[in-house]
Simulated assay, not measured.
Amino acid sequence: MLFPPLGQALGGGGDSSGTARRRGIGSNDYFDRYVAFGVPDDDLSETAFTRGLDQLADGPPGPEVAELLLRLENDTQRIGRRIRQRLDAGTPVPSTALLLELADRYGSLTAQAEGFLRADMSARFLAQDLFRNLPADARADVLHRMAATPQGTMLASRVLYDTTEPSSTAPAFAQEGDTWVQEARTSLVARLREHLTTPGPRPTDQLTDSDVDLIWNWRHIDHATARAWIRQRLDDGTWQLLPLLTKIVRPPRTPWGAVDADTLANLDALIDRAEVYTVLDQTQTTPDPDQARLLEGLRHARDRGRTETIQQPTSGPAEMTNDQDT
Rank of each mutant, 00 (worst) to 15 (best):
L2M: 12
G14W: 15
S16C: 11
R21F: 08
Y30P: 00
Y30C: 02
F31E: 07
F31L: 14
D32Q: 04
D32C: 05
Y34E: 03
G38L: 00
D42K: 10
E46I: 03
F49I: 00
D54H: 08
G62C: 03
P63V: 05
L69Q: 09
R71I: 07
R71M: 04
R71D: 00
L72F: 04
T76K: 00
Q77N: 06
Q77W: 12
G80L: 09
R81I: 03
R81D: 10
T91S: 10
S95I: 04
S108G: 06
D120V: 09
S122A: 15
F125L: 15
F125G: 12
L126Q: 03
Q128W: 11
D129E: 15
N133W: 03
L134E: 04
P135M: 03
A136M: 08
A140D: 10
M146D: 12
A147V: 01
P150K: 14
T153C: 14
M154C: 08
L155F: 12
S157R: 03
R158C: 12
R158M: 11
T169D: 05
F173L: 06
A174C: 02
Q175V: 01
V189Q: 02
V189G: 00
H195V: 06
D205C: 12
L207I: 03
I215P: 03
W218F: 13
H223Q: 10
A226R: 01
R227G: 13
R231H: 13
L234K: 07
L234P: 05
L241H: 05
L242V: 07
L245K: 02
D262Q: 14
N266W: 09
D281A: 12
Q282Y: 07
T283K: 11
D288H: 13
G297P: 10
R302G: 04
D303P: 03
T307I: 13
E308V: 14
T309E: 13
Q312S: 15
Q312C: 15
Q312L: 12
T314S: 15
E319D: 07
